[in-house]
Design a protein around this nucleic acid. Structure first.
Lengths: 251, 251
DNA sequence: CTAGAGGTTGACGCAGCGTCAATGTCAAGC
DNA sequence: GCTTGACATTGACGCTGCGTCAACCTCTAG
């Protein structure tokens, strides 16, 4: 007993186009092809088709389905792999949803989309022009998008980390430590690590690019807004010098 | 001040290919095109590009981004619409994840993928051949996929509903009620509604197809497995007659 | 002058079919 | 025997957003 393409399509709850597609890609060839070119399918084909459609409904792609039906892949294993895929996708969606919601809240607050206060209290974006000029606005734009994707708690934690770092720098500068001393270099290391955690920061195998770090130090000194957070121009100079030494030694 | 295509790509953290694409679709034309055909971009283009990339990161499609930037759509509104999209997608993923997990559990249990006991205690799938022969395997396959996508709680609720219905049918038959009486017809109505809730059931504007319902009644009588749930052959006959009357009057 | 970096315009590829388009075939009624 | 209508066939484009060659100019520095 065999059916025409329309018959089997209705039997399985799909369309003839889908069947022809499966025939084209070799997933489900017709059981028989008449002299007129018509496709005919038998019970085995129907069973196979039903299995195909079930796996498809679970979200598996055609190659994966083919592997399972060919016995090359264990069904349970294929599903396990697919399940990880699904969870990744879900995580991605969750992050995007959070990001969109954050942005909507920001818009309600009347703020600009491109937040100028992205790193409150440790404002790199104030140096936007310089940064963009030398390292590309990617350092700014990527950072902005990344920042927006974080939750309030994460933001608070980040800002806390920044403030602590700034305070430690300030204290070290006030104590008159040497920029090339162990303590100052430890701070420079923390600073570099912190920067490396910001997407968009020019990096070389996990660490900030040397010239970027040095240039950043120069900007800290050149701009009074930095000094305000570190006890004045001396603090900025201290940071610049320490970073320069760090960069020379480690990058 | 204007930049080459590579310059602005790096500045914004994207690729030149993307910029050419945006140019092709009219989303971001080059600010200027040299005699040599080279594209050049200015600050305005950079700002626009950054907004584009931000919206893109939020998951908006190119047409939606174009609408927002053209001022035809309010940004907040576009985001709200998009957010609903995201939630729908997430729901879909959640269902698919649940479905895959259920299937994996079924596989671990060593059961067949095409569950034979889909409607335990009220087994329609026992009539698979007849159903497929007359109504297409869609009634079976769709039902199977649908069933698999439900949570354990939902399944329990469904089965409870089935058992209650079966018990009520059984009681009515034992009480010697008339198949065309009000009580029997009320049960038939519940039965029809219950069937209509199963995807794959042949339906005509929200109700089971007449011939399908009648044929189902015949199958109930023809197969001893049905009688077992309804107090024997008399129960099945009662149900068949009641359904036939219901179908004649209402479908 | 030459090499090399960077620019241009096509055009295919991807996932899985939906959707015409142009055309051949089969079963049924006159 | 012919017409008609339902159903079949093989292309081939469309969708989404670019990645990735390919073939071929152009600019800049040594």
């Amino acid at each position: 007993m065999d059916w025409s393409i329309q018959d089997i399509a209705r039997l399985a709850g799909t369309t003839s186009r889908t069947l022809r597609h499966y025939g084209d890609v070799g997933l489900l060839p017709a059981s028989r092809v008449g002299d007129n070119g018509y496709r005919y399918y038998d019970e085995l084909a129907l069973v196979r088709l039903q299995r195909i459609l079930m796996l498809r409904d679970l979200g598996l792609g055609i190659p994966a389905i083919a592997d399972v039906l060919a016995g090359q892949t264990d069904g349970a294993e294929a599903l396990a792999v697919h399940l990880r895929w699904l969870h990744q996708e879900k995580d991605r969606l969750d992050r995007q949803i959070a990001s969109v919601e954050m942005t909507m809240l920001t818009l309600e607050g009347g703020e600009q989309l491109m937040a100028e206060n992205m790193f409150d209290g440790f404002d790199h974006t104030a140096y936007r022009e310089e940064v963009e000029e030398r390292w590309g606005a990617a350092a700014y734009a990527d950072g902005d998008r990344w920042w927006r994707s974080k939750s309030a708690a994460e933001k608070a934690e980040w800002q806390q980390r920044q403030k602590q770092l700034a305070a430690d720098w300030s204290a070290a500068a006030a104590a008159g430590l040497a920029p090339d001393g162990a303590e100052a270099q430890a701070l420079a290391t923390r600073h570099a690590d912190w920067l490396a955690g910001i997407p968009g920061t020019p990096q070389v195998n996990g660490r900030p690019a040397k010239q970027y770090l040095v240039g950043l130090g120069e900007m800290y000194v050149a701009d009074y807004r930095f000094g305000a957070n570190y006890g004045g121009a001396e603090g900025a100079s201290f940071v610049r010098d320490a970073l320069a030494v760090y960069a020379e030694r480690n990058l």
